[in-house]
Simulated scan of single mutants.
Amino acid sequence: MNVFGTVADLYERARPGYPPEIAESILAYHRGTPASVVEVGAGTGKGTEVLARLGAPLTCVEPDARMAARLVERFPDARVETTTFERWSPPDDGADVLGCAMAWHWLDPATRNALARRALAPGGTLAVFGHRYDYADAAQRDAVRAALRSADPTVRERPVDWFHRDVLDSGQFDDVRREVFRRELPLTKESYLALMRTFGPYLSRTPEQQRRGIAALDRLVDDFAGTVVLDLRTTLVLGRADAR
C-alpha cells in the first residue's frame, strides 16, 4: 500500500535531504561515472537529488501517480515510470547503478534483492540509503517513544541499519559495504510535527491514533522549549553485481 501520495507536498517540504557525499561515495565505489542510473521508489525526489549528481541518464520508478507527477516537475530530464518495482521491466542490458532511498522496506522482502540483482548490468552497483531518525538528547528520545507507545502500543522500530544486513544476508551481491553519515538537525515544533505526519507508521494508523499521537508530541515539544534536536543517521549500503 502506498500511503505517501496523499501527503506528497508535505513530504517534499518536511523530509530532510541527503548529504551530497553519498553521490561521491557511489562514484568512488563504482569506479567512475555510470552509463545509466535507475532509482526505485523515487517518491518526490529526495534521493533523486543525490542520484542525479552521478551524471548519467536517470530512470525513476515510482508507483504513486501523485509522487511521480512531482518527479516530472522537478527532474524534467529523467524518465519517470509509474509502476511498482516488481512490475517494472529493466533495460535489456541492465542498469549500471540501481539506487533506492528510504523505500527498501516497501519492496517485497522475498524478492527485492534478487530483482535488484537481475536489474543490474554485470559489475553494476546497488546503492540503498536512508535516514534513521534518533534524538540528540536521550531524555527527548525516551519521552517521545513513551508518548508514541501510549498513543499506539503496536509501534515498533526496525533495527539500526537493518537494510545492510538484508542486502548482505541475501547473498546476491559481492563486496557489500556500509557508510554512515551523521548530523544534528534542530527542528521547531511546526517542522517536527510536519515531519512526523509524513512517516508511514503515522499514515497507516487510524485517524484517532493519528490525532492522539500528534497531540502528545505537541505537548512534549512545548516541554522541550519548542525545539527538538534530531540525531540524523544516514546509512549508505553498496553492493556489486558480479558477472555470473
Rank of each mutant, 00 (worst) to 15 (best):
A69R: 15
N113C: 14
L236I: 12
N2D: 07
S150Q: 15
G5S: 05
E62N: 08
D92M: 15
D96K: 07
F181K: 03
P76S: 04
A216F: 12
H30G: 03
L120N: 01
G171A: 04
W104D: 00
A65M: 13
P122C: 05
A194E: 10
A101H: 00
L230W: 03
W88H: 06
D223F: 10
H131G: 05
V80N: 01
A14L: 10
P16D: 00
R244C: 02
A136V: 14
D134S: 11
T48F: 03
D134L: 15
T59L: 05
G32F: 07
P207C: 12
G239V: 14
A138Q: 12
R13L: 06
E24N: 09
E184L: 10
T111L: 08
G17A: 14
D77H: 12
L126Y: 02
S150G: 08
V97R: 06
D108H: 12
R15C: 05
A52T: 15
E12F: 13
R31V: 15
G123Q: 06
D64G: 09
R112E: 02
S150M: 15
T44S: 04
D174A: 07
S170P: 06
A151R: 09
R197D: 03
P186T: 11
K46I: 13
S25R: 14
A243C: 07
L168R: 08
L230R: 03
V37I: 13
L120S: 00
P153E: 05
V37M: 07
D169W: 14
V50W: 07
A139E: 10
R233Q: 10
A127P: 02
V61D: 00
T206W: 11
P153M: 08
L107M: 04
T84A: 02
A216P: 07
R53K: 07
P16S: 01
L203A: 02
M102A: 11
T235Q: 01
G239M: 13
L217C: 03
L238M: 09
R183F: 12
G41R: 08
A65S: 09
V237H: 02
A243D: 01
E81G: 02
P109T: 08
A103H: 02
G239S: 08
R31D: 05
Y135F: 14
R118N: 07
L148M: 11
A8T: 08
L217D: 01
Y11M: 00
W88R: 07
D152K: 13
R31I: 14
A225N: 12
V128E: 02
L238N: 04
L51V: 06
N113P: 08
T188W: 09
G226R: 14
E12V: 14
V167P: 05
D92T: 15
R79I: 15
A143G: 04
D77E: 12
L107E: 00
